[in-house]
C-alpha cells in the first residue's frame, strides 16, 4: 500500500506538471491574441461572435480595455487557448484524484490518518488546497487563469515533499494518540490548505492591481490576462475569512491537546509561537481590510506575509528549531 501511495504521488506531480504546462499554453496563446489584437486594431471583421458562446466570460473580463476586440486570425488561437485551459482544468481534476488516492493509500498503509509527519502533512495540505481550488473553479470559472499559479505551487511543494521530506510509513507515537490530535491536525491542515489557496488570488491581485494602475514592467505584465483586480481581491478575502476561524479553532484545539499531553495549554514552543504569529498577522489582515484608510494592496500584502509565516511554521520551524512538536520525522 505504501508503495502504491508513493507512486500515486509521483503520478500526481506529473499530472500537475502537465496541467501547469497546459495553463501556460493557454496563457501564451491568450497573449499572442492580445498582442496581435493590439497590433491590428483595424481588422474588426468578424467581431466578438467568433470568440465563442457564454463559456468564455474570461475574455471579456481580462482583455485589457486598451486592446481592440479579437480579430479573425488570432481567434483561432483563442479557441485553442480555451481548449488548453479546459484540458488544464481536467488535468487538475485528475491530479487531485491521484493525489487523494495517494493520501488514502498512505492512510491505509499506516492504519491512521495520514498526518503523522511533515511529509504526510504537506501531502494533505496541498490536497486541500487543490480541492478548494476546484470548488472555486466550479463556482467561478472565470478565475481559471489562476490555475497556472496554483499548479506551479503544487508541483513545487509536492516535489519538495517527495525529495526532502519523505519518510516511510510509521505509526503514531503515544503523544499523538488522542482524538484532539485528529481534530487539531485536521483543522490545521484544512485551514493551511485554504490559506495556501488564498495566496494565489492574493498575489494575482497584487500583480493585476499594479497592471490596472498602468504598470507595464515585468511582474505586472504577467497579470495582463488575469481576472479583474476587484474580483481577485474579493476572492482573497473570502478565502481568508473562511480559513481564519478554522485556523483559530485549530489553534485552540491544539492548546486543549497540549494541556492533556504536556500539562500546559500554551508554552511558547517554536511551533506555538509561529502559530501565534500567523494568527496575529491574519487578524491584522482582517483589520487592515476593514479599515478604509488602509489601501487594499497593503492589506493583501499582509495576507501574503501571513502565508509566509504559515510556511515558516510548516518548514522552517521543523528544520531550524527543536521543540516538543518534534514529530516531523526530519533529521
Amino acid at each position: 500500500m505504501s508503495a502504491v501511495s508513493d507512486q500515486l504521488v509521483t503520478f500526481a506531480i506529473l499530472v500537475y506538471l502537465v496541467a501547469m504546462i497546459s495553463h501556460a499554453v493557454e496563457y501564451a496563446l491568450g497573449n499572442v491574441r492580445a498582442v496581435s489584437a493590439r497590433v491590428a486594431p483595424a481588422r474588426e471583421l468578424v467581431g466578438a461572435g467568433v470568440g465563442g458562446g457564454g463559456v468564455d466570460k474570461v475574455d471579456a473580463a481580462t482583455t485589457p480595455p486598451t486592446s481592440a476586440p479579437p480579430s479573425a486570425r488570432p481567434s483561432r488561437s483563442a479557441g485553442r487557448a480555451r481548449l488548453a485551459g479546459r484540458i488544464a482544468a481536467g488535468l487538475t481534476v485528475l491530479a487531485a484524484a491521484l493525489h487523494l488516492g495517494a493520501l488514502v493509500t498512505r492512510g491505509i498503509a499506516a492504519d491512521r490518518m495520514p498526518w503523522g509527519n511533515m511529509y504526510e502533512f504537506v501531502l494533505t495540505v496541498t490536497w486541500i488546497g487543490t480541492a478548494a481550488w476546484l470548488v472555486v473553479l466550479w463556482k467561478r470559472p472565470a478565475l481559471r487563469q489562476l490555475g497556472l499559479f496554483l499548479t506551479l505551487v503544487m508541483v513545487l511543494l509536492l516535489a519538495f515533499a517527495e525529495l526532502k521530506l519523505y519518510v516511510p510509513v510509521v505509526p503514531l507515537m503515544p503523544a499523538l494518540q488522542s482524538y484532539w490530535f485528529i481534530i487539531h491536525v485536521s483543522t490545521i491542515v484544512f485551514s493551511s490548505g485554504i490559506f495556501l489557496l488564498g495566496v494565489v488570488p492574493a498575489v494575482s491581485f497584487l500583480l493585476r492591481n499594479g497592471y490596472e494602475q498602468g504598470r507595464r514592467s515585468f511582474p505586472y505584465t504577467l497579470a495582463r490576462r488575469l481576472p479583474g483586480a476587484a474580483d481577485l481581491e474579493r476572492l482573497t478575502f473570502a478565502l481568508h475569512a473562511f480559513a481564519f476561524p478554522i485556523f483559530t479553532f485549530a489553534v485552540i484545539a491544539g492548546a486543549i491537546w497540549a494541556e492533556a499531553a504536556w500539562g500546559r495549554a500554551w508554552g511558547w514552543d517554536p511551533k506555538e509561537t509561529w502559530a501565534f504569529i500567523s494568527w496575529v498577522v491574519y487578524a491584522g489582515y482582517l483589520h487592515a481590510r476593514a479599515t478604509p484608510s488602509v489601501r487594499r494592496n497593503v492589506a493583501t500584502w499582509i495576507a501574503v506575509l501571513g502565508f509566509l509565516t504559515v510556511l515558516m511554521n510548516l518548514f522552517g520551524v521543523n528544520f531550524f528549531f527543536t521543540g516538543l512538536h518534534s514529530y516531523a520525522g526530519v533529521e
Partner: peptide, 26 residues
C-alpha cells in the same frame, strides 16, 4: 484602528525572537 493594526504587527514581530532564541520557560 490604525494603532490597533500597528500594535498587532509589533506583537507578531516581537514574538519572533521567542522562537529563534532559546527560552528559559521552554
Amino acid at each position: 484602528m490604525r494603532t490597533a493594526l500597528i500594535l498587532l504587527f509589533l506583537l507578531a514581530v516581537a514574538a519572533i525572537p521567542g522562537s529563534v532564541l532559546p527560552q528559559r520557560g521552554v
